[in-house]
Design a protein around this nucleic acid. Structure first.
Lengths: 139, 139
DNA sequence: AATTAGAATGAGAATAGTTCGCATTTGGAC
DNA sequence: GTCCAAATGCGAACTATTCTCATTCTAATT
């Protein structure tokens, strides 16, 4: 079999390199939209001529999450959105009018979170910081 | 009509003082559990002998949210939990093992969030910061 | 206290997002 | 190339939430 980047990525993550998984990973790497729901992925892939069952999309995205390839977010509205992990950790600002998502990273906030977790007797495993507001375009 | 605290609270919030709303508000004020799903509220009230339809619980909690009486959170797991607004703003640490929720407030983080929103051209309207970790008891 | 119009409620149907069960297919070790 | 375990697709099932609409309640008015 061809030893593509995607095949490698999956194998390193401990996942068999199946066709649906390869397609989904390739799609996530190629799309310009960074935050997608399972349904978004399903529809966008269909439009691109790649048919993968919706249930499989859900399963694979969950596996990718466990493997650390993607991150799942729960922005307002309740349903999950997924984001390919590349580069460094960051948090999000979401526009409450148009839904636009921007990313940011703040060292001070990161540090203080660890401190706060410790102070409360917790071992921090993760965090979710989302700022909601009205973006420049929507004002 | 009797001019109770609850009746007052509802009227100030622009809501008619109906029996279900009074019962729900009274329940939220009396329970020691601070973070509850709609279903939690439904069941706990049933146990307490107060029957209010689940659909009404959802409607009323949403109205309370709009009125600023409660806050809705989206912790991991997807479904909403509600918290009575009393005292000052705070964020949350959730134990990923047992689900315990602790509250904290950190001035530095609050300030930096506003700064970050501005830097990105947003007018911040709200934010959600949740730290996930393993609590002392679960370690 | 009785009337009344509009708002609120309850019960169940409907919906959205997600997961499950199982028959069929596929990946890759031998 | 064979073969078994793992993965997929499909539709059914599930969960959380919202909607519909007939009935009931609130509170303003008489």
């Amino acid at each position: 079999m061809k030893d593509t980047n995607e095949t490698n990525g999956l194998q390193k993550a401990g996942l068999k390199a199946t066709l649906p998984r390869l397609k989904i990973l390739k799609f996530l790497e190629s799309t310009t939209v960074r935050h997608l729901s399972a349904e978004d992925v399903y529809k966008a892939m269909l439009d691109g001529g790649e048919e993968v069952g919706l249930a499989t999309i859900y399963r694979v995205l969950t596996q990718f999450e466990s493997a650390g390839l993607v991150t799942r977010h729960h922005f307002e509205g309740g349903h999950s959105v997924f984001e390919l992990n590349e580069g460094k950790h960051h948090d999000h600002i979401v526009c409450v009018k148009c839904g636009k998502v921007e990313e940011f990273y703040d060292e001070t906030i990161e540090e203080r979170q660890h401190l706060i977790a410790e102070k409360n007797g917790f071992s921090m495993t993760d965090h979710a910081l989302t700022i909601y507001g009205v973006c420049a375009d929507c004002k």
